[in-house]
Design a protein around this nucleic acid. Structure first.
Lengths: 194, 194
DNA sequence: GACGATATAGACCGATCAGTCTATAAATTT
DNA sequence: AAATTTATAGACTGATCGGTCTATATCGTC
């Protein structure tokens, strides 16, 4: 293992950043909880921002992996999977450690659009959207990307309403709205390919 | 004017908190930009958190006022107004100083659900939702609260996708999704009152 | 056993943090 | 004009910030 300490640092930072935010989490807290020496951190990362970027990359990988697995375990057909997205959201929201979307939170703290941390957050959202596009394409609708965009809005809205407004029912409401939007798109027949 | 300095402090803090975040904005920066002495701040506010709460209250008041005025100026019928919500969002997003939703950002930095700052953010979202409920009720739909919840998800989703993912088209996509959801609700006739 | 890489503890840096205190000076009210 | 409130500049606190440096120690590899 070339970088066991590096992994420890990222995992610990992931916890702390999610719990307490980025600016509010000092390097010292991370070192203490990870049980790692100061210079070990700075041998692996040039700066705190680099550590933040590394945690975002790990979070993106873990989250999307978990998310897609959960959706695909729940349902087999593309249409059912698009709805399973919101059941999976429900699971996420129900987790005691749920602390909102790390990428929305990161964008809040690093607001400059060209900040690497903000850009990494944007990239995560693009990748999630891409997944919805795949599912939407698979159900053979006339405008799959449009449908995916709309379902994405419901997903992000649910995250916000659950986290900020403390509404635990946001996911199921998003689900029923998604049903209506999907139905609406299915009525517009796809043209016969020639 | 009993509190000209107090107002200056709140307005300045509002700018800086939106631009740079809460933790990243030091008291000294606010004092310098506001041109106000240190003790003047602490005579008006017990702590930085109290100042943050005051800025959130002002932001809530200014934003909702602007928002509702804009919606009502744009359209007269409740149904058109529900769609004008998303045109108003578009205006907001197009502002060069757009820096996301201050309340979403505040919740990101003050994540504890019982934190007064988080609670104030939740309250803002509830008040916006209430406004959507009024509009939804006025169009005589069978389940107005349900429709309002769904439109709220689209609104919050648009804010996130525009700010985090940098998608300037989020508002118009939300608008077309809203059309579909409203149409879907209008098909379920309201019962005749007796 | 020797070597090079990796990790260690902890001192140290200048800067900044939120918040307190004091003594003076404006501005309002009476 | 006198009295009271409000604001001022700036020193000061103790804590924390991100980051650097050094000297020692542990580790895997040859």
């Amino acid at each position: 293992m070339a970088s066991g300490k590096r992994d420890q640092l990222i995992d610990t930072a992931l916890d702390l950043f999610c719990q307490n935010g980025f600016h509010a989490t000092g390097i010292d807290k991370i070192l203490e909880k990870a049980g790692v020496a100061r210079m070990t951190l700075y041998n692996h990362f040039k700066s705190k921002d680099e550590l933040i970027l590394a945690t975002l990359r790990r979070r993106d990988e873990k989250f999307r992996n978990w998310f897609m697995r959960s959706v695909e375990r729940r349902a087999a057909s593309p249409q059912e999977r698009l709805l399973a997205v919101y059941d999976t959201l429900q699971d996420w929201f129900s987790d005691a450690a749920f602390s909102g979307c790390m990428f929305i939170n990161a964008s809040a703290e690093f607001g400059a659009p060209d900040d690497p941390i903000h850009l990494a957050s944007a990239e995560h959202k693009v990748l999630v959207l891409k997944y919805l596009r795949e599912l939407a394409t698979a159900i053979g609708v006339r405008h799959p990307d449009e449908l995916a965009d709309e379902l994405m809005l419901l997903m992000e809205g649910a995250i916000v309403m659950c986290y900020v407004a403390g509404d635990p029912g946001a996911a199921s409401r998003a689900r029923s709205a998604a049903e209506k939007l999907i139905r609406s798109h299915l009525k517009i027949e796809a043209p016969i390919a020639d």
